[in-house]
Design a protein around this nucleic acid. Structure first.
Lengths: 212, 212, 212, 212
DNA sequence: GATGAATGAGACTTCATTCAT
DNA sequence: CATGAATGAAGTCTCATTCAT
């Protein structure tokens, strides 16, 4: 609304850098609090204190409390998109790209547990009444699509069984997200170590090979 | 509305309504609203209206709003325990019992989508800020334990590969819950049809058998 | 409203005895609870439970919760009136009748601590906003009047100094009630033993010096 | 309405209003309402309206409705302590200091009838059910102690009869508080004029007969 | 821009009172 | 008469949002 511009060296330099950096700081603070207390229990005051600014100042950067959750969702979705994009653009055998994808997803969230923790809230908010336009469903839809593509390539290559399709993509996404869920509920589970078992189970299956 | 005096076990109930039946009615109404709007957005008034009683009457059967969520959790946990118990007590080849378990879990929730929908809230409540003593983590812990037992039996039998253990149990639980999650976010996914792909992926794996 | 009468031996005997006995029971129960928890914190439910009847039944005997306090006030006022009447009608030296009065007041309340305890609530209710028509002020007014009469008689007799009047009556009433107050706040104070010090302080201070 | 930034002790107060001044304003408003309607009948809304602020603003300065009563108690107790301290530290004949004390107590409350009126509620709150930690009993205990000390000094001096002790102190405290009680119930009583009768009754009654 | 005091809508909860049985 | 389940008005308290400084 107010566009205080500062003229430096003859070029118009909107204070955008500062503004957006400050916005990011606040968002990061908000995510930390969401992770700690959950969205429902998080007060604007908590966020302001965490960001070490005044309560009113939060509203200079975000329209509303809900907007903070939306922004957190955006951060999560952006990261997801990046990871998925990389898998899509990657080269090499599709099953290896699948492996990388699974490892990346788990590593990304293990590295940033704060963001991971708000997953639960995002799942809840992704449903029903929520006035928020957080499109969680489409995040998972894209996720399934990418994996289905990889499986299709693998099928074309002959590295996976015939008849593998959408549903199997859903199962793989499910295995990853379900392991994350369990880790969120039980932080002692070694999340990064679960990548290999996930791939073993999904790719190799549990049944013993007859002649192996 | 009032369902007269009710005979239970041959003795006349002291008063007019069957307390526990009425309690269940209100809980069912609450679960319907939770499913529709989520716990955070559900007002006592909503529950009362759904149950077609006065707001104050809810408090005759539940101590607080939180107690409603606790009760919903109990209903969910009780059902989980039943399903798991059945798998534990079952006879027959362990991998078949695993199959039954997976199918039962999905069928149970598909049959009662209302209860399934509050899963998201229960997951959230299972973490952090919640003062509620909803022990979601232990639900999943037991779940993993039962599956790990089945895998151990199968390993003893020689029907699964050696080295299969806790982590693989976590992956199977994850696959089931992760598929449920996706269904909750995207109700068009055919949840019951996912049981077979889950079992295929987990038991058989995706990779094509060399000599098949 | 309902006047269920029972014919016994040919005479109409309204069930008044029972009815009024029951009323007294409830009132006594109410007074016990008021004494224990104070009027503000007393619930109709508490009274019903104490009287061992159903909550709704309280309303068969009292119009409202406030009516219970009114009735308790009436009981207190009636007792006060009795004590005062006795002092008024008594014969003998006025200062001795004053002594009896003081001893009676303290003894009456010491004997029935329950009623004494609600004095505090009655004092509060005797003021301001209270919709209740509890006329505490007139209880004390009558009290002062009776004592002033005794003092006037004593003055006429020459047993107290001249100039003793209304204000001194107020002081004597005050001394008694003020001691009661302290006892209510600090039950270890020996309330009945305070009668003599009160009389010593007050009467000896008023008695004309013999030879002066 | 907002009274700008205020300089206290040379340092700029961090924000705009002086928190403690505003707190006092609200407390004063609360005391006015308590005096008018009694604590039990006073709603937060009443206090807010009296202070001409929003309902929620009360909670910026007091944790709860009960905290308002506690604060009012503190104001009363602080004043009591001051009056008592003065009597304790005073010099001069003990019976004169007793006279000053009685006059001070009556004058202090006569001057601030608002605070006096809540005495009734404080007495009630000093008992039983109240969760509040208002220690009315100890106020009166200290009061008795100070007067007992004065009497002991007077006894040592020979200005009061032998055998005068704790109980007589209780009677004097009672006379003062009992007169206040009557004034509260019957505001037409001339409270300040009662100091002399109280002293006449009590002091002359205690003074040793010169030639006896 | 920054702040935090102020606000008041709205949620929970209590409990006096009613009334069908 | 007796009862206690049901009710909803009313009260406390919270907190997102606004706005004067």
């Amino acid at each position: 609304m107010t566009d205080q511009s500062v003229i430096i060296g003859g070029s118009v330099t909107p204070k955008r850098v500062d503004r957006s950096a400050r916005r990011e700081e606040i968002l990061a603070a908000a995510v930390r609090v969401f992770a700690r207390k959950g969205f429902a229990a998080t007060r604007i005051d908590d966020v302001a204190r965490e960001a070490d600014i005044g309560k009113g100042s939060v509203y200079l950067y975000f329209d509303s409390r809900d907007a903070l959750l939306s922004a957190a969702f955006e951060a999560f979705a952006a990261r997801s998109r990046t990871v998925l994009q990389r898998a899509r653009e990657g080269t090499g055998p599709p099953l290896e790209r699948l492996g990388s994808l699974v490892r990346s997803v788990l590593a990304a969230l293990a590295e940033d547990p704060e963001l991971a923790h708000i997953l639960l809230d995002l799942w809840s908010s992704g449903r029903a009444q929520s006035q928020l336009p957080l499109d969680m469903p489409s995040v998972y839809s894209e996720y399934r699509t990418v994996i289905a593509e990889l499986l299709r390539e693998a099928e074309a290559e002959g590295t996976v069984r015939q008849g593998v399709g959408q549903h199997h993509a859903t199962v793989i996404v499910g295995a990853v997200e379900g392991c994350l869920l369990q880790w969120l509920l039980e932080p002692r589970l070694p999340i990064t170590e679960l990548a290999e078992p996930i791939l073993e189970v999904c790719v190799e299956g549990l049944r013993r090979r007859k002649e192996a």
